[in-house]
């Protein structure tokens, strides 16, 4: 107990002595966390959009002729061999005609005289609802086109390609901003602690001379680094929350957010980010104190 009281006493004294540089570091960590978590928030919500849009996603495989039941089973087997799907539906020419007629509504009389088998039969393949299904859908489409009796395969290729590119870009941005977070947390904190160490060399030397252990000298710096990470990441997340509220207010009304909810980060994610930033900053502090502890 005495150990912790003494450590906290030393840490608070040291923080007060160099509060300006500590404040700058907290601000830098906050910005890094804000940048990273903003992109992560965008990514998470893009995933939601993908999932929502994926609900209506299907591949329509147009066939040369109506497949008899044994061939339908063969198609089903081949499709399932490539990937798990949610549903496979065979639509014959007559059913396609009826659907088309229904879609035309009051204009359905334009179809008078047109044979009811003029539309090709098709297979509707509903992939599993996940972002990965979006990513895999092109390969799926390419595979389906290789099946015998297939004329062509249609799906919302253009928007899926764009969406997929966007998600890929977001992943890269998240990796880069995560890297930025790691760099700022470890290096900025390491440099701040180093400055702090240099300003206290006389005291550290004296502590060594009066019998302080390595842990006694190092722990206040580790606590200092962890506190910088904790405060920086917490304020970063708080700033992100304010930004999230502002965006929701700005885009309230008949916008995309009414169709797809713009959610905030989950508690486990927030805890993960704050813990990671705190540990990274403590690590930065550990790195900074190593050389000077050989006094």
């Amino acid at each position: 107990m005495r150990f912790f009281t003494t450590l906290l006493l030393h840490t608070s004294r040291d923080l007060l002595l160099t509060w300006k540089s500590q404040l700058m570091t907290v601000f830098t960590v906050m910005l890094s966390v804000l940048i990273f978590s903003f992109f992560y928030l965008t990514y998470v919500n893009a995933l939601h959009v993908g999932t929502e849009m994926g609900n209506d996603l299907r591949l329509v495989v147009y066939l040369d002729e109506d497949p008899p039941p044994p061939l339908q089973d063969e198609y089903r087997r081949r499709i399932l061999k490539f990937d798990q799907v949610e549903r496979i539906k065979f639509v014959n020419s007559q059913e396609a005609y009826q659907r088309f007629s229904k879609q035309l509504g009051s204009d359905s009389d334009v179809l008078s005289g047109v044979p009811d088998d003029f539309l090709p039969p098709s297979i509707e393949v509903y992939p599993l609802r996940s972002l990965d299904s979006l990513a895999r859908i092109k390969r799926f489409s390419d595979y389906l086109e290789t099946l015998p009796g297939v004329q062509k395969v249609l799906y919302g290729k253009e928007w899926i390609d764009h969406f997929h590119a966007f998600i890929q870009l977001m992943r890269i941005v998240i990796i880069l901003s995560g890297f930025l977070l790691i760099m700022t947390s470890t290096f900025m904190v390491a440099y701040t602690i180093q400055l702090s160490l240099f300003s206290r060399v006389q005291k550290l030397e004296l502590l060594r001379l009066v019998g302080a252990t390595t842990n006694y000298i190092r722990m206040p710096f580790l606590i200092e680094g962890a506190l910088l990470g904790l405060f920086g990441s917490t304020t970063g997340i708080a700033a992100l929350y304010l930004l999230h509220r502002w965006i929701k207010l700005q885009f309230s009304g008949p916008t995309l957010f009414n169709l797809v909810p713009f959610t905030f980060l989950s508690w486990p994610t927030i805890t993960g980010i704050v813990t990671a930033a705190t540990l990274l900053c403590a690590l930065g502090s550990f790195r900074a104190t190593r050389p000077i502890l050989h006094l």
């Binding site: 006389q202 030397e205 004296l206 001379l209 019998g211």
Partner: peptide, 18 residues
């Protein structure tokens, strides 16, 4: 080294005060 230094007290010529 702290094991030794806890057993000795040193009054330095240059004081070594903060």
């Amino acid at each position: 080294i702290h094991l030794l230094r806890r057993k000795i007290g040193v009054a330095y010529q240059d004081f070594k005060l903060l």
